[in-house]
Design a protein around this nucleic acid. Structure first.
Lengths: 209, 209
DNA sequence: GTTTTTGTACTGACCAGTCAGTTCAGAAGA
DNA sequence: TCTTCTGAACTGACTGGTCAGTACAAAAAC
């Protein structure tokens, strides 16, 4: 009997196989892109037969879509956690943003391939999984937007800021800086990178003022 | 007689054909990715025969590499212009950064497909044109780094900033915000977007201080 | 008369998806 | 405990289609 959808229930064995396939697919697709990655490669890297891929997923693109959902789920949860923890501990909204920057960096540090793949596919148009991507993007950005809005509401942040645009810009700042970090100067520490971005967030770039 | 390398010289007619091919390729690859775009499609969209593609470029990936070089050349020139113009008019380095943000937005506004494609390919590893990308990326980021360094040198900017990382973060901020603008709220004006990013750059996000 | 483009046809490699058959893990019976 | 049975999970050779790149003769363009 086949399943092949977003099935939470499933034997332990099956779940393990799916996990192996996710891991194989994420690195290969990050390196080469979706179309340049063959199902045979994914199966080989995961150490299973090609048929197993199709036993577990309806198609190559379904595998990819579920991979996306899975990964962004992790990211969103981690951002939300960071924001809530800050709030619980009585931090300001700017502190929450800062904590989210760090959470983003930690995520990218742990799952660089996923991040790479996400960025590469996010702005493509005319692709099968377009709608999935939109949903999934909105989930992540919405967390940032939420904190910005709260900050504006309690006038901790200027009410002139453009919430959606600023949220996108912040996400972009972290994303690109982190990918650069991983690609071009991987020896640096997370704290280092975090400090640099924090400074930018809090406008401590200019010398005086 | 064949040519098919980075040939600056070439008849006007040939140059026109190449231009048509660039334009066709850039939109198709931005939408679908490199591997999912066929040479037949590119030829058809450009309104030329398939043989013409191979008369003008050695292969599909050579066409793509030259496209990259061509596009980033335009961007780099435009950033440099903005920085120099500001300097000539006696603006500060922060003004120069602001002008470069605007130049970046103008570029993305004019060549959204190229930008999309560039972002999608930049962090891929294991691809044929990897080295081309590295060179080309460095060209663009170097312009921003240059201005930051000058700012630090004349202590207009804090000497604690991390130049390469901050440059990457700024580029990312503009890139992602602009792609979001184009993809999700294209009705907004360039000035609007510029104002939001400018505010972020100058730390005018917090309400007080 | 030389360069560039056209159009069509072709080849050979590659690849997503299929399917008939095999293995496995654990339940039911002895 | 050991055997048999069952359905879920997995296998890998195979198929049909797609596509990069080639070939080339004839026509435009310069």
């Amino acid at each position: 009997m086949e399943r092949s959808s977003t099935t939470p229930g499933g034997s332990a064995r099956r779940e393990a196989t799916r996990q192996k396939l996710y891991e194989a697919a994420v690195t290969l697709i990050a390196e080469q892109g979706f179309s340049a990655t063959t199902v045979d490669e994914i199966a080989e890297r995961a150490g299973v037969a090609k048929g197993t891929v199709y036993y577990n997923f309806a198609s190559k693109s379904v595998l990819f879509e579920e991979l996306l959902r899975h990964g962004v789920g992790l990211l969103t949860a981690s951002l939300r956690d960071a924001a809530e923890k800050t709030a619980r501990e009585g931090g300001s909204r700017v502190d929450a943003l800062d904590a989210m920057i760090r959470a983003g960096l930690v995520f990218i540090d742990r799952y660089p391939a996923f991040t790479q793949l996400y960025v590469a596919e996010l702005w493509r148009t005319n692709r099968a999984w377009q709608s999935t991507l939109m949903v999934v993007r909105q989930q992540a950005v919405a967390v940032v937007e939420g904190v910005l809005r709260e900050g504006v509401a309690n006038s901790e942040l200027s009410e002139e800021i453009d919430v959606p645009l600023t949220a996108a810009a912040l996400v972009g700042m972290v994303l690109v800086a982190a990918l650069d970090w991983k690609s071009f100067q991987p020896e640096r520490s997370l704290d280092d990178v975090h400090a640099a971005l924090s400074r930018l967030l809090q406008g401590r770039v200019s010398g005086h003022r």
